[in-house]
């Protein structure tokens, strides 16, 4: 224990200077520290992933847009921007994120859907109907299947997955609704997606009814 005669106090720990008055301490025998001492050096300034990404993003998009306008072709630079944004989401929210797999899968499902739907409206034309006829049903069916498998093989994480799964199952109904509403012409992928979603939902009800009800009570408590 060291002593500060100025403050008339004992000071514990591996310090030479009084924490209060900054005068030199008279060192005693026991100088073992109670706290890990904070040692501050000059921190290395790390360049964040965000900064690098947005630098690359804006430069690439501006160059593409410039070429795009110069060549007077259709707006393919928007596709470049969309793909880069997706890469950002993929790295930031899926690869680097510490969230559990159900959140990542849900996020991917939503972002992919939004990108394709946005492209459908930007490049409006008969050649883009494949977005609703094939892409969305495939995304939702694959996502629902993965949730179904995850719940089956990682039973103890059921409560983490179920709410996201239910949202995806609801989304899986949309392509069929669009087909029945004559918005799209090709119905087979939509029906397959609907069938997969119903199958996964039924398996939840049959195997985990009690759990499902409790989970819904938890999530919707007011």
């Amino acid at each position: 224990m060291s002593r500060c005669y100025n403050c008339d106090i004992e000071v514990r720990g591996e310090v030479d200077i009084c924490p209060l008055c900054h005068n030199k301490l008279e060192r005693g025998d026991d100088t073992s520290g109670v706290f890990p001492i904070k040692k501050i050096g000059v921190p290395l300034k790390k360049i964040s992933f965000d900064k690098i990404f947005w630098f690359v993003f804006f430069n690439t998009v501006f160059v593409c847009l410039f070429i795009n306008i110069f060549l007077k072709t259709y707006y393919w630079s928007i596709v470049v921007a969309a793909v880069l944004l997706y890469v950002y989401v993929l790295i930031k929210n899926t690869i680097l994120s510490k969230s559990d797999i159900s959140k990542k899968l849900f996020f991917q499902t939503i972002v992919l859907s939004l990108i394709f739907v946005a492209m459908r409206f930007v490049f409006d034309g008969p050649q883009m109907t494949w977005v609703f006829e094939y892409v969305l049903p495939i995304i939702y069916a694959v996502s629902a299947l993965i949730y179904g498998i995850l719940i089956f093989i990682r039973v103890h994480n059921f409560h983490d997955y179920i709410i996201y799964e239910l949202f995806v199952l609801l989304l899986g109904v949309i392509p069929t609704v669009l087909y029945l509403g004559n918005v799209i012409e090709e119905g087979i992928p939509s029906f397959i997606c609907f069938f997969v979603c119903i199958l996964v939902f039924l398996s939840n009800i049959i195997f985990s009814w009690k759990f499902l009800v409790t989970e819904l009570k938890k999530r919707f408590h007011a």
Binding site: M1, V11, R12, G13, V15, I17, P19, H22, F35
Partner: peptide, 18 residues
Amino acid sequence: LTLTSNYAELKDFSGATA
């Protein structure tokens, strides 16, 4: 009083940075 600090006070009485 007995004191403990988690932060290394490194300015000595002469004012120089230790």
